[in-house]
Nucleic acid binder design. Sequence first.
DNA 1: GTTCTAGAAC
DNA 2: GTTCTAGAAC
Length: 624
Amino acid sequence: MLQKKETPLLTEGFSRIMSCNDDGDIKKAVDLYNALGPSDSLPSGIFCQKSKGPVQVGIMKFLKKGDTSTVEKSSGPKITLSETKPEQQKPLPKHEKVEEGMSCPMEIEKGLNDKNENEEHAKECDSGDVDSCTLAFPSISTADFQFDLDRASDIIVDTAADFLQKFDNITYIRLVLVDLSEKSRILSLVKEKASKKSIDCSRFFTFVGDITQLHTKGGLRCSVIANAANWRLKPGGGGVNAAIFSAAGESLHHATKKCADALRPGTSVVVPLPSISPLHQREGVTHVIHVLGPNMNPMRPDYLKNDYIKGSKILHEAYNSLFENFASIVRGHMGKQNEKLGPEMSASGGTSPNDTKMKREDSHGSERMKKHKLLPPIMTVKQQHECTKANMPNYHDKSITSSAAPNQAREGDTKKSGVVASKTWGSWAQALYELAMHPEKYKNTDSIMETSDEFIVLKDLYPKAKRHVLVISRTDGLDSLADVKKEHLPLLRRMHSAGVKWAQKFLEEDASLVFRLGYHSVPSMRQLHLHIISQDFDSTSLKNKKHWNSFTTPFFRDSVDVIEEIEQHGSATASSDEKILAMELRCHRCRSAHPNIPKLKSHIANCKSSFPSHLLQKNRLTSS
DNA sequence: GTTCTAGAAC
DNA sequence: GTTCTAGAAC
């Protein structure tokens, strides 16, 4: 239930930790403890019961379980009414007979509540081959993006026919166009046009139902589903996108973010769906392909102003990209089945020369999109220097931050050109650098407490505790711990001593304070700076999880440890990852967890526990 | 780094 | 209804 929470450890003082994944596990655990007599005991250790249940519910949902809007567990977890968009709430239509006079080979299947009527299909779909090779997709661009249905149906039928012809040797590859309503105009148009083209109805058909419940409600197994995504690949909005993200849970969101940040109209991206996703567990969906089509809605981004020449081209590209990506998944699956090679192949990885080509093209396509679309033009370090030279160092002055061109890391680019990727810095991240390079310009600022050739001591403008100062190195090119080498050791030692000196000075004024000296693993601001921060964290500027975790998790690297590490290894390699900043909030003294910043702050205002033992060693803390 | 704000959580 | 967070923008 506590999905983002740190797992408890035996070292925290527990003797036995059991993980329960579903109600059954919980009951077993409760029964186990209920059965204990006064002198009974259980073995110590960590006991993780393997998940058999379909989904791990969030704690809020667990507590609300009695709510009648949530469907009973017996039929598998269902989307609660409050989570679905109005169009997803409509009950699925009852099975209807195929319309009379329908001569085409296409079949219309109605969403089925009655399992018996779907038995035949379900049986067929249970075959591993078949379920691995069915793509269910919604009509792209015809809902919110208001693309003309007649033109769209032509494009769907054309691209599907081309695709199936290309794969006519793989008979069990199937494409299924899905829509919610039996009255769907796009379904009937596609059905009609497909019949005219005599497309094999076992390989391409339409289906009435909810794309997020094809297996459980419709008896149709589709391991790959397409999503009519938005360009930011964000959950929400409405329609299919909202429904898929909602049904797939957080893990789809995370998995998507790993694959791409944004999508260009006419392209698609494959996202392997983590096995913890309810959509994976319940419906057997292993991949979601996000597709972005052309937009004919003036209220939405990339509006094409009714330019159907461009629009049709983009819609063609969108379906081609979708089907090609689907093919790469199928090939990956076939590769696994046929070759049974030792090393695992990626879900989209193929093995034949053709596959390699396709994979390369695909990855090129997605790489192009990956992390790039939203980024502004890159600047060289020199350009950044030029750009910021003219500016004042007050890093919160908006006139500065808006005048300097932003720049951010584009690892892909630097890697490709063979240059080692080095972090680039946003305009707001330059202030300490400016100050370190030209302290004389700011000598009247009362924030500067000390200046030497090697460093500057500055009051943090947004202190995160009663006392919070920075010792900023003045060495040009030394921006973060990643840049620190053995040659910088004397500097680091002197920065440390300066920090200790200031801490002692503060202790003369308030002997109750306790100080910690250290660096952020990944600093937000350029120019190596050492934090000297009192451990009360009593400050209105400490506002969020990132602030807290940057000073109280391994993201904060104690100066003494950094120095020792560089002495031993020549560099500071143990730096922790930015992911840790999103962790739960725990008291830095007693390690208790708190649900939000205000509650954490009221706790730490009173917590008198001693500091964790590792902080009590090696002078990591400075106190009176 | 902060500010702003939509939407989630309460 | 208010509080709080997280992500975008700067």
